[in-house]
Simulated assay, not measured.
Amino acid sequence: MKKMKNSIKLMLAAVICALGFISTLQAQEYQKGFRLGFGLNTGYLTGDEYSVGLGADARLQYDVSKKTSLAFTTGYTHFFKDNLPDDGFIPLKMGFKSFLGNKFYVLGEAGAALGVINDTGNTFLWTPGIGYATRHIDLSVRYENYNEYLTNQVALRLAYGFSLKKKNR
Protein backbone atom coordinates (compact mmCIF):
# COMPACT_ATOMS: atom_id res chain seq x y z
CA MET A 1 0.00 0.00 0.00
CA LYS A 2 2.98 2.28 0.64
CA LYS A 3 3.94 1.97 -3.06
CA MET A 4 0.39 2.97 -4.01
CA LYS A 5 0.53 6.12 -1.84
CA ASN A 6 3.93 7.04 -3.33
CA SER A 7 2.49 6.53 -6.82
CA ILE A 8 -0.38 8.88 -5.99
CA LYS A 9 2.04 11.52 -4.71
CA LEU A 10 4.05 11.19 -7.93
CA MET A 11 0.86 11.50 -10.03
CA LEU A 12 -0.20 14.62 -8.11
CA ALA A 13 3.24 16.18 -8.67
CA ALA A 14 2.88 15.45 -12.40
CA VAL A 15 -0.54 17.09 -12.40
CA ILE A 16 0.86 20.22 -10.74
CA CYS A 17 3.58 20.38 -13.41
CA ALA A 18 0.92 19.87 -16.09
CA LEU A 19 -1.04 22.81 -14.66
CA GLY A 20 1.97 25.04 -15.18
CA PHE A 21 2.29 23.78 -18.75
CA ILE A 22 -1.43 24.14 -19.42
CA SER A 23 -1.45 27.78 -18.34
CA THR A 24 0.93 28.59 -21.21
CA LEU A 25 -1.25 27.01 -23.89
CA GLN A 26 -3.85 28.83 -25.95
CA ALA A 27 -7.57 28.55 -25.28
CA GLN A 28 -9.30 25.50 -26.64
CA GLU A 29 -10.95 26.16 -30.00
CA TYR A 30 -14.35 24.50 -30.32
CA GLN A 31 -16.04 23.49 -33.52
CA LYS A 32 -19.38 21.76 -33.63
CA GLY A 33 -18.72 18.04 -33.74
CA PHE A 34 -17.29 15.13 -31.79
CA ARG A 35 -14.23 15.02 -29.55
CA LEU A 36 -12.64 12.00 -27.88
CA GLY A 37 -10.58 12.07 -24.69
CA PHE A 38 -8.66 9.47 -22.70
CA GLY A 39 -8.03 10.11 -19.02
CA LEU A 40 -6.29 8.79 -15.92
CA ASN A 41 -7.99 9.20 -12.55
CA THR A 42 -6.96 9.01 -8.92
CA GLY A 43 -9.27 9.56 -6.01
CA TYR A 44 -9.65 10.04 -2.30
CA LEU A 45 -12.37 7.72 -0.99
CA THR A 46 -14.63 9.00 1.75
CA GLY A 47 -15.64 5.69 3.36
CA ASP A 48 -13.69 3.45 5.73
CA GLU A 49 -13.84 0.42 3.43
CA TYR A 50 -11.34 1.57 0.77
CA SER A 51 -8.05 3.45 0.84
CA VAL A 52 -7.61 4.78 -2.72
CA GLY A 53 -9.20 4.70 -6.17
CA LEU A 54 -7.39 4.54 -9.53
CA GLY A 55 -8.88 4.37 -12.99
CA ALA A 56 -8.81 5.13 -16.69
CA ASP A 57 -11.62 6.39 -18.89
CA ALA A 58 -12.70 7.38 -22.36
CA ARG A 59 -15.06 10.31 -22.93
CA LEU A 60 -16.93 10.93 -26.18
CA GLN A 61 -18.08 14.54 -26.33
CA TYR A 62 -20.37 16.28 -28.79
CA ASP A 63 -19.92 20.05 -28.91
CA VAL A 64 -23.36 21.53 -29.55
CA SER A 65 -22.01 25.09 -29.23
CA LYS A 66 -18.83 26.90 -28.22
CA LYS A 67 -19.90 26.73 -24.57
CA THR A 68 -21.92 23.51 -24.24
CA SER A 69 -21.18 19.84 -24.89
CA LEU A 70 -22.89 16.52 -24.30
CA ALA A 71 -20.67 13.77 -22.86
CA PHE A 72 -20.64 9.97 -22.60
CA THR A 73 -17.96 8.50 -20.32
CA THR A 74 -16.93 4.92 -19.60
CA GLY A 75 -13.78 3.17 -18.41
CA TYR A 76 -12.63 1.22 -15.37
CA THR A 77 -12.12 2.26 -11.74
CA HIS A 78 -10.40 0.13 -9.11
CA PHE A 79 -10.86 0.62 -5.36
CA PHE A 80 -7.99 -0.63 -3.20
CA LYS A 81 -8.63 -1.97 0.31
CA ASP A 82 -6.19 -2.43 3.18
CA ASN A 83 -5.81 -6.15 3.98
CA LEU A 84 -8.98 -7.10 2.06
CA PRO A 85 -9.80 -7.98 -1.57
CA ASP A 86 -10.07 -4.96 -3.89
CA ASP A 87 -13.17 -3.93 -5.82
CA GLY A 88 -13.59 -2.63 -9.35
CA PHE A 89 -16.35 -1.29 -11.56
CA ILE A 90 -17.13 0.06 -14.99
CA PRO A 91 -18.80 3.49 -14.95
CA LEU A 92 -21.33 4.30 -17.69
CA LYS A 93 -22.27 7.99 -17.51
CA MET A 94 -23.97 10.59 -19.68
CA GLY A 95 -24.02 14.30 -19.00
CA PHE A 96 -23.19 17.84 -20.04
CA LYS A 97 -20.17 20.14 -19.98
CA SER A 98 -20.64 23.90 -19.90
CA PHE A 99 -17.80 26.38 -20.27
CA LEU A 100 -17.79 29.40 -17.96
CA GLY A 101 -15.16 31.21 -20.03
CA ASN A 102 -12.53 30.15 -22.51
CA LYS A 103 -10.99 27.35 -20.44
CA PHE A 104 -12.92 26.65 -17.20
CA TYR A 105 -16.02 24.44 -17.20
CA VAL A 106 -18.56 22.67 -15.01
CA LEU A 107 -19.55 19.08 -15.69
CA GLY A 108 -22.53 17.01 -14.57
CA GLU A 109 -22.95 13.32 -15.33
CA ALA A 110 -25.22 10.51 -14.16
CA GLY A 111 -25.41 6.82 -14.90
CA ALA A 112 -24.44 3.47 -13.43
CA ALA A 113 -21.41 1.81 -11.85
CA LEU A 114 -21.29 -1.85 -12.88
CA GLY A 115 -19.41 -3.96 -10.32
CA VAL A 116 -16.98 -6.45 -11.86
CA ILE A 117 -15.02 -7.81 -8.86
CA ASN A 118 -16.23 -9.65 -5.73
CA ASP A 119 -19.92 -9.39 -6.62
CA THR A 120 -19.89 -5.69 -5.79
CA GLY A 121 -23.17 -5.23 -7.65
CA ASN A 122 -24.40 -2.25 -9.63
CA THR A 123 -25.37 1.18 -8.40
CA PHE A 124 -26.62 4.57 -9.53
CA LEU A 125 -23.73 7.03 -9.99
CA TRP A 126 -23.85 10.82 -10.24
CA THR A 127 -20.88 13.08 -10.74
CA PRO A 128 -20.63 16.88 -10.54
CA GLY A 129 -17.24 18.42 -11.32
CA ILE A 130 -15.19 21.41 -12.39
CA GLY A 131 -12.34 21.50 -14.87
CA TYR A 132 -9.85 23.34 -17.02
CA ALA A 133 -9.40 22.42 -20.69
CA THR A 134 -7.12 23.46 -23.51
CA ARG A 135 -7.11 22.19 -27.07
CA HIS A 136 -5.75 18.78 -26.00
CA ILE A 137 -5.36 18.71 -22.19
CA ASP A 138 -8.25 18.38 -19.74
CA LEU A 139 -7.76 18.57 -15.97
CA SER A 140 -10.76 18.19 -13.67
CA VAL A 141 -11.84 17.50 -10.11
CA ARG A 142 -15.12 15.75 -9.48
CA TYR A 143 -17.19 14.24 -6.70
CA GLU A 144 -18.54 10.75 -7.43
CA ASN A 145 -21.53 9.53 -5.44
CA TYR A 146 -22.15 5.77 -5.52
CA ASN A 147 -25.67 5.20 -4.25
CA GLU A 148 -25.24 1.58 -3.05
CA TYR A 149 -21.50 1.34 -2.33
CA LEU A 150 -19.96 2.01 1.07
CA THR A 151 -17.91 4.98 -0.16
CA ASN A 152 -17.87 8.03 -2.41
CA GLN A 153 -14.88 9.58 -4.17
CA VAL A 154 -13.26 12.94 -4.80
CA ALA A 155 -11.30 12.28 -7.98
CA LEU A 156 -8.69 14.09 -10.06
CA ARG A 157 -8.68 13.44 -13.84
CA LEU A 158 -5.90 14.26 -16.30
CA ALA A 159 -6.86 13.58 -19.92
CA TYR A 160 -5.71 14.03 -23.50
CA GLY A 161 -8.42 14.83 -26.04
CA PHE A 162 -8.75 15.59 -29.73
CA SER A 163 -11.36 16.46 -32.36
CA LEU A 164 -12.80 13.71 -34.54
CA LYS A 165 -13.74 16.24 -37.21
CA LYS A 166 -11.74 16.04 -40.42
CA LYS A 167 -9.88 19.20 -41.26
CA ASN A 168 -10.58 20.86 -44.61
CA ARG A 169 -7.55 20.84 -46.88
Rank of each mutant, 00 (worst) to 15 (best):
M1C: 08
K2C: 11
K3C: 12
K3G: 05
K3V: 14
K5N: 04
K9A: 04
L10Y: 15
M11G: 11
M11V: 06
A18N: 03
T24G: 09
T24H: 12
L25S: 11
Q26D: 15
Q26E: 05
Q31D: 14
T42E: 04
G43W: 01
G43A: 11
G43N: 00
G43P: 00
G47K: 09
E49I: 03
Y50H: 12
L54S: 08
L54K: 12
G55N: 10
K66I: 06
K67P: 15
T68W: 14
L70S: 09
A71H: 02
A71R: 09
F72G: 04
F72Q: 01
G75M: 14
Y76D: 04
Y76H: 05
N83R: 10
N83Y: 13
L84P: 01
D86P: 07
G88D: 03
F89C: 11
I90Y: 07
L92K: 02
K97F: 03
K97E: 12
L100F: 09
N102C: 11
K103F: 14
Y105L: 14
Y105E: 08
L107G: 01
G108V: 07
E109T: 11
A110R: 08
A110W: 11
A110D: 11
G115M: 12
G115A: 03
V116D: 08
L125V: 01
W126R: 02
P128A: 10
I130L: 09
I130N: 00
Y132P: 01
Y132C: 06
A133N: 05
T134K: 07
T134C: 07
T134M: 03
H136R: 13
I137C: 09
I137E: 03
D138R: 10
V141Q: 04
Y143W: 13
Y146Q: 00
Y146S: 01
N147T: 14
N147R: 13
E148T: 06
V154D: 12
L156T: 09
L158E: 01
Y160C: 03
G161Q: 10
F162Y: 09
F162R: 04
K167R: 15
N168F: 13
